[in-house]
């Protein structure tokens, strides 16, 4: 059987299954990567969500078996190819200062351990909440004398993935109080604001309807612990801001720009809804 034929047959079979019965992923599955890295894919919701959710769930739980299994072994996870490329980038000297990432941060496995788990994070010197992408570009411009990367581009997504892998399995733990609180509040406001001609908020789908099918899509809680995420749909790593943009666009709204203060705030808030889930990046989704 050729591959396209197989896909067609699968789609027909799935359509038959999806109609008239609940099409559900295996929501009891356990995610173990490379045979020994146990991921927390469901856990008690953080305190700030206690009035709306009891449990938080990784998007991994809502994917089909074959997509889920791709994330259980780094040799099967297509996102790891981009991590390898970013490792080369880490060691590459660029810019007027004759530096690479490694010039200051040495071995990424040591220096970046735990970093992804706490981002976005308040930066005292800059007086703002910064995402990992902002910090990466800050290093490139101000430490290396190199050009900024496009916020949602391949270089950026790959470097975010490389840094994130060093925290894989650690619980997401972004701070929402202190100086980050006002940004977090702004992100929360955005999460519940209905936009566009379809008049939909993040919460309409990802808080009120996770677990339900919307056409052929199984709605998840919209957690971002797996970002940057490799999507089978476009065969590349996708950043959370690119995903936010796609979601807002799909409400028939004018989107915000990736890297904008609005999306930075939204990223902090959405990340905080996943406090307690394992960092999974690069996750595999459809």
């Amino acid at each position: 059987m050729t591959k396209p034929m197989g896909k067609t047959l699968t789609a027909i079979a799935l359509a038959a299954v999806a109609f008239g019965s609940v099409a559900s992923a295996d929501e009891t599955a356990e995610l173990v990567v490379n045979g020994d890295l146990n991921m927390v894919t469901r856990t008690a919701a953080p305190a700030h969500l206690s009035d709306v959710l009891d449990e938080i769930n990784s998007g991994w739980l809502y994917r089909k078996d074959e997509t889920q299994s791709l994330q259980t072994d780094d040799f099967d996870n297509p996102g790891m190819i981009f991590v390898d490329l970013a490792q080369d980038e880490w060691d590459t000297v660029e810019g007027t200062e004759d530096k690479s990432c490694a010039s200051c941060h040495d071995d990424v496995e040591d220096s970046m351990k735990g970093v992804r788990a706490v981002y976005p994070k308040w930066n005292e010197t800059a007086g703002e909440v910064r995402t990992l992408a902002m910090q990466i570009n800050d290093c490139r411009v101000n430490q290396m004398g190199a050009d900024k990367w496009k916020y949602t581009g391949g270089d950026m997504a790959g470097m975010e993935a490389l840094i994130s892998v060093q925290s894989r399995g650690m619980p997401v733990d972004v701070a929402i109080d202190g100086p980050a609180q006002s940004t977090w509040e702004e992100g929360k406001e955005m999460y519940y604001t209905r936009t566009g001609q379809l008049d939909l908020s993040c919460a309409n789908c990802h808080e009120e309807n996770y677990g339900n099918m919307i056409r052929a899509d199984h709605l998840s809680q919209g957690q971002i612990n797996g970002f940057p995420t490799y999507r089978l749909k476009n065969a590349k790593l996708n950043t959370s801001h690119a995903r936010f943009k796609g979601c807002v666009r799909d409400t028939r709204a004018e989107t915000y720009k990736p890297g904008s203060s609005e999306f930075v705030a939204l990223e902090l808030y959405v990340a905080s809804r996943g406090n307690g889930l394992s960092v999974e990046a690069p996750a595999v989704r459809n």
Binding site: T195, D199, N204, E208, K245, V248, R249, R252, A253, E254
Partner: peptide
């Protein structure tokens, strides 16, 4: 959650269909 199918105003950040543009 249901969108309004015959309504043209009162929206936040209305876009040009699914382009993501205003």
């Amino acid at each position: 959650v249901m969108p309004a199918f015959y309504k043209v105003d009162g929206f936040t950040r209305p876009g040009n269909a699914y382009t993501g543009k205003a």
